[in-house]
Write a protein that binds this DNA or RNA. Structure first.
Lengths: 150, 150
DNA sequence: TTGGGGCTTCCCAGCATGGGAGGGTCAAGC
DNA sequence: GCTTGACCCTCCCATGCTGGGAAGCCCCAA
């Protein structure tokens, strides 16, 4: 099948199909004599794997690892689990970061009367004189910075 | 003060200070006769504002809006609050997305015995035959796709 | 034969950030 | 005065993932 049909069947855009091939995530598709890419069932299966992994937030490099394990008959499920759990840790880190930001912002918005007057604790906090949060221990940067400022 | 000192005082890297100036987020710093940027107290205050907004996850465009409001004596706090709350909605959307991914992955990892054998429900799910999640209603793509697949 | 849709490659864009090359400037110390 | 090292300048490139678009070829149906 052609690339358009492959895109339809995998949910990956034509652009991305070519990109994944270019960066070596998937092996180059066969070509017709005129240069059209031709996708076979096993290519589609691989691409669906990629698509699902992407939907789970895996980066291309991690997907490459997973694809390698998928093809490796001698893999141990422990390896796969390790990759998955490492990714969970990463996602949770990002989630905590979002939580911090949401918490701070909601707190600020809650204290803002939101009427026609210009006084606003949100801008007041952002524009406060004090030093900015230290760039160091990451995950609590926002919280710490604003705990001090608020 | 020079750009290096400004970077130290604001927690924004030298690279970013130049970038923010280039894209017009902040007005160009004064220059010495030899071309060095010179930062004044009010520049530092502005940059700290930018830094804090960035720490709250605002994009540069949104920060530009907030800076505009900050400088606008005639603003209403309602406008500011609206920007903040819209951003909260966005952050929460992203958090839901992360939650979906974390939930699915933890579920898969939980069902993976993680030993020396190759059998693995994680890979099994990623490589399942069925159609891939429809790209449409976004926030539940992952969940739906895997609910069907698992 | 012609038209339209699909395919090809190549280049560009975005976000926010960092790296590095190649070269000028400044201040301190000899 | 001269050297040295830290600092600054601009310019280009890279990242990760995605999309847009141009120029040109291919294929099928009418």
């Amino acid at each position: 099948m052609n690339i358009g049909e492959a895109a339809r069947q995998t949910g990956i855009s034509v652009k991305m199909l070519r990109y994944y091939e270019e960066i070596g995530l998937v092996r180059p598709a066969l070509r017709t004599y005129s240069g059209y890419r031709v996708y076979q069932d096993k290519d589609i299966a691989t691409l669906r794997f990629v698509r699902r992994a992407r939907d789970l937030g895996f980066q291309v490099k991690e997907i490459a690892t997973l694809l390698g394990l998928w093809c490796d008959q001698a893999r141990s499920s422990a390896e796969v689990k390790a990759v998955a759990l490492a990714h969970v840790v990463d996602l949770e880190e990002r989630r905590r970061h979002l939580d911090d930001m949401i918490g701070t912002l909601r707190h600020l918005a809650h204290n803002c009367h939101g009427d026609a007057r210009p006084d606003c604790p949100i801008l007041g906090t952002l524009g406060a004189d004090g030093p900015v949060a230290p760039p160091a221990p990451r995950r609590s940067v926002v919280k710490a910075g604003f705990a001090a400022a608020v």
